[in-house]
Design a binder for these strands. Structure first.
Length: 318
DNA sequence: AAGTTAGTCAACCGCGATCTA
DNA sequence: ATAGATCGCGGTTGACTAACT
């Protein structure tokens, strides 16, 4: 049996808000506040809207000091850094950007920023895949299920940044990978039995070691920006950890070999600088020698060959 | 000029968390 | 302690528009 609907769907208006509805809602809330009950609010002011819809409209559009569009470079950097580190916690990310809403940031990430960061990599793969006329089909086949996966996507972004920083990335050098704990070894064995791809266990080895480091509580040390939002990243990091899946999420700066990682602050600064370069197209003309370009492309191809879903990772560790 | 595709963004939906009686 | 109500979040959808063929 499902949950009772929060409102009478049949008598509720949906779709875009009219200026009159906006005015009614805004005037009421500015004068009386929300009254702590969004569900009852629309009835009080004679709006044929669901309470949730009113709340959303107020939070995302009507409340004071909301900024729309025109994200600054600094905001881009903050969003990217936080996404790579904590994933799609849009409300937390929004709390660090005064005047921005989680919905706005989510849309901005999905439609622009993600492409900005991943686009170069994807374009390179497409070029490599040759002179095929049917590029649409190629793209679909090349990324069967990877980009919808938040954790893998973040790993991919992180690898891309690592590759930019260090063309001789440790991802292609097993000697640099961290030593495994017995439990991790066991997981790798399980994975081996699941998939015979030569790249699969190697990449999973690093994914898992990263994940386990994250699960062991190693954290990125964020400096809290001046914000009246109250929640710090660290607070939310702990408070929000309510599932095994979250524990498994890859905290991008954790679990890296110390020779490459340095301390967290240095890595964060390097990451920040690299993001800055990418986002501002300062390396748009950067030329990777073909060999390095191919090597980097192969690292990303690992994900194709792995054909692994987050579910399969979850099952192994839970 | 008309049709198609891709990009953008406001809004909706469902679910877990939290509150309250 | 518990069940129902509400909140808040993240994923997804769909309308609209611009760019392209």
């Amino acid at each position: 049996m499902g949950r009772a609907p929060c409102c009478d769907k049949a008598n509720v208006k949906k779709g875009p808000w009219s200026p009159e509805e906006d005015a009614k809602l805004k005037a009421y809330i500015e004068q009386n506040g929300t009254g702590g009950n969004w569900i009852a609010l629309p009835q009080k002011i004679g709006l044929k809207r669901c309470g949730k819809s009113c709340r959303l409209r107020w939070l995302n559009y009507l409340r004071p000091n909301i900024k729309h569009g025109g994200f600054s470079e600094e905001e881009d950097n903050i969003i990217c850094s936080l996404y790579i580190s904590i994933g799609s916690r849009w409300s937390i990310i929004a709390a660090q950007l005064p005047g921005r809403t989680d919905n706005d940031i989510k849309n901005y990430w999905n439609t622009r920023l993600k492409k900005k960061l991943l686009g170069r990599r994807k374009q390179s793969n497409l070029n490599r895949l040759g002179d095929s006329k049917d590029m649409k089909g190629v793209e679909e086949n090349a990324y069967p299920n990877a980009l919808s996966n938040s954790a893998l996507e973040r790993l991919q972004l992180h690898m891309q940044l690592q590759s930019l920083q260090n063309p001789f990335s440790f991802y292609s050098n097993p000697a640099l990978w961290p030593k495994l704990l017995p439990l991790q070894e066991k997981m790798i064995q399980n994975l081996k039995s699941m998939n015979d791809s030569p790249n699969y266990p190697a990449m999973i080895q690093h994914v898992l070691s990263n994940s386990l480091c994250a699960a062991q509580g190693q954290k990125v040390d964020f400096h809290e920006p001046a914000s009246s939002a109250g929640n710090t990243i660290q607070e939310n990091h702990v408070k929000g950890s309510n599932s095994n899946v979250e524990e498994l999420e890859i905290k991008s700066l954790n679990g890296m070999p110390s020779a490459i990682r340095g301390d967290g602050t240095e890595q964060l600064s390097a990451l920040q600088a690299e993001l800055d370069d990418i986002l501002n197209n300062r390396n748009a003309g950067y030329y990777f020698p073909q060999q390095e370009e191919d090597q980097m492309a192969e690292q990303f191809d690992c994900f194709k060959e792995m054909n692994v879903s987050k579910d399969s990772l979850d099952k192994l560790v839970v």
